[in-house]
C-alpha cells in the first residue's frame, strides 16, 4: 500500500529509525569492516596472495623465453612433450596455447620458484588441480607469481577459460618431487 506511494511524511529523512534496523545496521557494518580488513590482514599474515608483478609482452617474446628454459633444463619427454626440471629458486615458464600447457614442469617440494605465465593465442585459464589454484592467462601479458609447492605428487593443469572446440583436451602436468 505504501511502498509504491510517496512517503507519508514530507520530511521523511528526519523520521526516527526503529531499533531493529539500527541494531542490524550496526552489526552488518561491523561485519563489513571485518571482511574488508581480512584482505590486507591476509596480505601480511597469510601465505596465499597473488603478486601483482606483470609485464606487457608478445607471444614471440614469451615463447622464446620458454624455449630457452626448455633447452637448458629438459630432462626427458613424455607423450612428445618436454619435461623440464629447473633448479630451485629459478624463474620457470609455462605457456598456454590451443590446446596445451607447455612444457611439463618438474619441481621440488618446499622450494620456491618464480612462475611466469602467458598465452600464445586466446585467453586461457590456469587451473592447478587438485590443489585448486586458478589464474586467468591473457595473451600479451606475462604474469609472475612465486609458488612454493608444499605437497609432493602429480598435478594436473586444466584450462578453465573456454578456448574453442578443443578446450577440454587442454590438460598439462606439473610434478612435485620430495
Amino acid at each position: 500500500m505504501t511502498s509504491y506511494m510517496p512517503p507519508a511524511d514530507r520530511v521523511w529523512w528526519k523520521v526516527p529509525v526503529g531499533r531493529v534496523e539500527l541494531v542490524w545496521i550496526a552489526l552488518a557494518l561491523l561485519w563489513c569492516i571485518i571482511m574488508f580488513l581480512m584482505m590486507p590482514y591476509w596480505h601480511v599474515y597469510g601465505k596465499q596472495n597473488l603478486s601483482t608483478e606483470a609485464y606487457q609482452t608478445t607471444p614471440a617474446k614469451f615463447g622464446a623465453r620458454v624455449q630457452e628454459m626448455v633447452d637448458q633444463y629438459k630432462v626427458r619427454e613424455e607423450a612428445g612433450m618436454p619435461v623440464v626440471a629447473p633448479p630451485a629458486g629459478s624463474d620457470i615458464y609455462l605457456l598456454g596455447r590451443l590446446w596445451q600447457w607447455w612444457p611439463i614442469l618438474e619441481l621440488e617440494k618446499d622450494q620456491s620458484y618464480r612462475l611466469h605465465l602467458s598465452s600464445m593465442d586466446w585467453q586461457h585459464g590456469f587451473s592447478l588441480q587438485p590443489t585448486n589454484v586458478n589464474l586467468q592467462i591473457v595473451p600479451g601479458y606475462e604474469m609472475v607469481i612465486q609458488i612454493t609447492p608444499d605437497k609432493a605428487g602429480e598435478y594436473g593443469v586444466i584450462c578453465n577459460e573456454y578456448c574453442g572446440i578443443g578446450h577440454h583436451t587442454m590438460v598439462g602436468k606439473i610434478y612435485v618431487k620430495e
Binding site: 507519508a8 511524511d9 514530507r10 520530511v11 521523511w12 529523512w13 528526519k14 523520521v15 526516527p16 526503529g18
Partner: peptide
C-alpha cells in the same frame, strides 16, 4: 512510524534536509 504532532502548515515550512534533496 512517525507521530505527527506538527500541524500541516508548520510541516510544510520545514526545510527539506540536504540528503533528502539529493535522494530526490
Amino acid at each position: 512510524m512517525s507521530d505527527d504532532k506538527a500541524t500541516p502548515g508548520r510541516e510544510s515550512e520545514e526545510r527539506i534536509p540536504a540528503m533528502q534533496s539529493i535522494l530526490d
